[in-house]
Design a protein around this nucleic acid. Structure first.
Ligand code: ZN
Ligand code: ZN
Length: 742
DNA sequence: AGCACGCCGACT
DNA sequence: GTCGGCGTGCTC
């Protein structure tokens, strides 16, 4: 027999190997194979691959086929449905299959070390163990064995988990001895198996929630549902009940959430309800645990998996429901490597398994609203806050006129209007919390010399290095280049350097000076570098230790702070001047989410937005709390200009040391596409918004198609054009299918 | 990805 | 003359 093996090398094909007669193998099993001649080391290199097909014959001559060196495990680590999913993904994003394999498989599974299914041992006494205990046949010096037999005998619930036995001070050796002597025996059970009932709370669903739940559960299986629910409207309870229904019929559930929402509190809520039936894939997990979760999901042992973007690649034996929370969130789109979108892939997987998929958001993406409009998604609304918290009032602070002052460079200058400072002061005096949102890390985005024209330009990028005074460094936020913070001008030597503009670090310092008796907490990726630090900071906000919070994006997502009654948005105008056609959608989502952070039942909360464009319609929409209407207006605008989601776009992004050959390359790609495709429209090429990055010129070619399907049909043409025109890969061209950022 | 092969400039 | 640079192509 011949096994067709997929190898983790970036080639768009699989390899045939001879399967020894004695071996029986199945699709999805891991194998060790040799590849190449390996003349240098005298041995060909050995790699771990996955069997994708087993067949009688191979198109390759028998003599050229190498044997499979070893079957690494006795079971398959993926199934056919998974392989089909990976194949679809590779095609859709024009990526080599094996590159996806590398992306999708946990490291430990890609290695050649043998895997074992994660099982816990549950112990109980054998007949001979029971009589040995009762007749006290064991010598008195065998104290540990006697104690162990007594302990196992006295349990009301048997068999008993190994961990509980170990807790009593029995070592692994004590236990194996009892097993070896025939006194005890064990059964293997999944660590995610539970005999306990799901712990439903005596929580009364609102009429709206109940109606929504009924609508989803009675809908046909292959439906996509979009829940539009304002913060606090009880989306999570809906998810929990849907999950419970699914696992009660023996199905598995995948819940995708943004990285930032995966907090201990969130997990605690799931564990409280579902006990050990839940596993979470988060960044802190080790390779071994990831592999265990993978295998448990694959063989059907794991009922519920909560995970971030990459969890979409987990194989399931009986997947019955997919939920994508905060479906608008940008973190679902991978930016580097294969630019896949987990929400879009989730839709494919649901379709593939013929199961329902539920998307939820307080600010649905235009992509999803478009699908609603086309009748592909069913829209459900949760308009009343289940917790009775009142909607915040939104105020605009007109910053026309005093904008110059904050740009003058004096660090004494606060980027916050005097009236806002008063509001913050009053809030703190009332023992309530205030939150200041500024989406810029660091102390100041630029450093300048007042004597000459020196600015803190990154030596390798078209960008300024941000000053981080705490760390005494200049950081380039694009390429990561770091150098010490200069104390005198690197160009003229004068000690007259100033910090221009505001970042969270500067704002923190200034606000601490304004409110010396209150605890000012900064929340950003510089201050909280690890997830644990972030969770600790969030806890400080929840328990009231922090009074005034200054933060970036990090505070926008997912968390509700009931005691925050005042929210200030320092600067929202950047988005309105952006060249990205999605900037306005983003701004509306971001501001709606920021507003959703605040408030509780008894207290009226306020959101203050500083802007130099107070008449912009996005603010009126925000004040009327009318996300859907405004989003639909944006959607109409996108249609008019033939932009996504009405049209599909893909961007060919390339870079090189010199601009001229790079632009020529992209012009050649454009010409090839224009000559060979009716459906595709090209625009550009043009230098990227950041023209130079790490000393390489960046340029891009926009390609638009009337639909995603049309784009898919023509994608091989784009691929061919690139591989043909850039054989040496010196332009590092990548195709960003359904690009989200430009 | 790795590795071999091959074709040119430059260095004992 | 050969050493090594990398551009090109192959691996079942
Ligand atoms: Zn100077
Ligand atoms: Zn840089």
């Amino acid at each position: 027999m011949i096994a067709e093996v997929l190898l983790p090398i970036p080639v768009n094909q699989s390899f045939d190997y001879r399967l020894p007669e004695s071996q029986t193998a199945v699709v999805g099993q891991r194998v060790l194979v040799a590849l190449g001649t390996g003349k240098a080391n005298n041995t060909p290199r050995q790699i771990t691959g996955i069997i994708v097909a087993i067949k009688e014959t191979s198109p390759y001559p028998d003599a050229s086929l190498k044997p499979i060196l070893a079957l690494l495990d006795s079971f398959a680590i993926v199934d056919r449905a998974w392989l089909d999913f990976i194949q679809f993904t590779a095609r859709y994003y024009a990526a080599p299959l094996a590159k996806l394999l590398i992306n999708a498989l946990p490291k430990h599974i890609r290695s050649d070390s043998p895997l074992t299914l994660p099982k816990l041992r549950y112990y109980q006494l054998t007949e001979s163990g029971i009589s040995a205990h009762k007749t006290e046949i064991l010598p008195t010096r065998a104290t540990k064995q006697r104690a162990l037999l007594r302990f196992l005998h006295d349990q009301d619930k048997i068999p008993i988990n190994e961990a509980l036995v170990r807790e009593q001070g029995f070592t692994a050796h004590d236990i194996t001895t009892a097993v070896d002597k025939g006194y005890a025996t064990y059964t293997l059970t999944s660590p995610y198996h539970s005999e306990e009932n799901v712990c439903s709370p005596d929580y009364q669903l609102t009429g709206e929630q109940q109606a929504l739940l009924d609508a989803i559960t009675t809908a046909p299986d292959n439906k996509t549902h979009l829940i539009y629910g304002v913060t606090g409207s009880g989306k999570t309870e809906i998810y929990l009940q849907l999950i419970e229904k699914a696992i009660n019929t023996g199905q598995q559930v995948l819940l995708l959430i943004p990285e930032i929402s995966l907090t201990p509190q969130m997990l605690a809520r799931f564990h409280e309800r579902f006990g050990n039936r839940v596993a979470a894939l988060h960044s802190g997990l080790g390779d071994k645990v990831r592999a265990d979760i993978w295998l448990a999901a694959m063989n059907g042992d794991l009922p519920i998996l909560i995970g971030t973007r990459s969890a979409i690649f987990t194989p399931f034996q009986r997947l019955g429901l997919i939920i994508v929370d905060e479906e608008h969130d940008l973190s679902y789109k991978q930016q580097e490597g294969i630019p896949y979108h987990a929400r879009d892939l989730a839709r494919y997987r649901a379709h593939q398994h013929n199961i329902p998929i539920v998307l939820g958001s307080a600010t649905p993406s235009l992509e999803s609203l478009y699908q609603v409009k086309k009748g592909h998604y069913q829209l459900h609304q949760l308009v009343t806050r289940a917790t009775q918290a009142t909607q915040p009032t939104i105020h605009l602070i007109d910053r026309r006129g005093d904008k110059q002052a904050s740009h003058a460079g004096s660090s004494a200058n606060l980027p916050i209007a005097e009236i806002l400072l008063q509001k913050i002061r009053q809030t703190l005096q009332r023992q309530e919390q205030a939150l200041v949102f500024l989406n810029r890390r660091g102390f100041s985005p630029v450093m300048m010399c007042r004597h000459c024209d020196w600015k803190s330009e990154c030596p390798t990028c078209d960008a300024y290095q941000t000053a981080h005074t705490r760390a005494r460094q200049l950081h380039c936020h694009l390429c990561g280049y770091i150098c010490p913070l200069p104390t005198q001008c690197p160009q003229c030597g004068q000690r007259d350097l100033i910090f221009v503009g505001h970042g969270t670090e500067k704002l923190e310092t200034q606000l601490q000076a304004q409110f010396p008796h209150h605890h000012v907490l900064r929340l950003d990726r510089d201050k909280q570098t690890t997830t644990n630090q972030l969770h600790a900071a969030l806890e400080q906000i929840h328990n009231g230790d922090a009074h005034l919070i200054v933060g970036t994006q990090l505070i926008v997502k997912g968390h509700h702070f009931p005691n925050v009654t005042t929210v200030c948005v320092v600067d929202s105008d950047q988005a309105l001047f952006s060249s990205d056609f999605r900037a306005e959608e983003r701004l509306l989502q971001q501001l709606t989410q920021v507003a959703g952070r605040a408030g509780r039942e008894s207290q009226q909360s306020h959101v203050y937005i500083q802007t130099t464009l107070p008449t912009h319609p996005v603010f009126a929409a925000l004040q009327q709390q009318d996300y859907l209407t405004y989003a639909n207006n944006l959607l109409a605008e996108r249609e008019k200009y033939e932009l996504p989601p009405h049209h599909a776009i893909t961007i060919v992004k390339a870079s090189a040391l010199d601009a001229a050959p790079l632009m020529q390359f992209l012009r050649d790609v454009k010409a090839l596409i224009d000559d060979n495709s009716q459906a595709l429209t090209t625009l550009g090429p043009a230098p990227s918004p950041i023209e130079r990055l790490k000393n390489r010129f960046q340029a891009q070619l926009f390609i638009s198609a009337p639909s995603r399907m049309a784009l898919q049909r023509e994608l091989p043409l784009i691929e061919k054009a690139i591989t043909h025109l850039d054989k040496s890969r010196r332009f590092r061209a990548v195709i960003d299918v359904d690009a989200m950022e430009n």
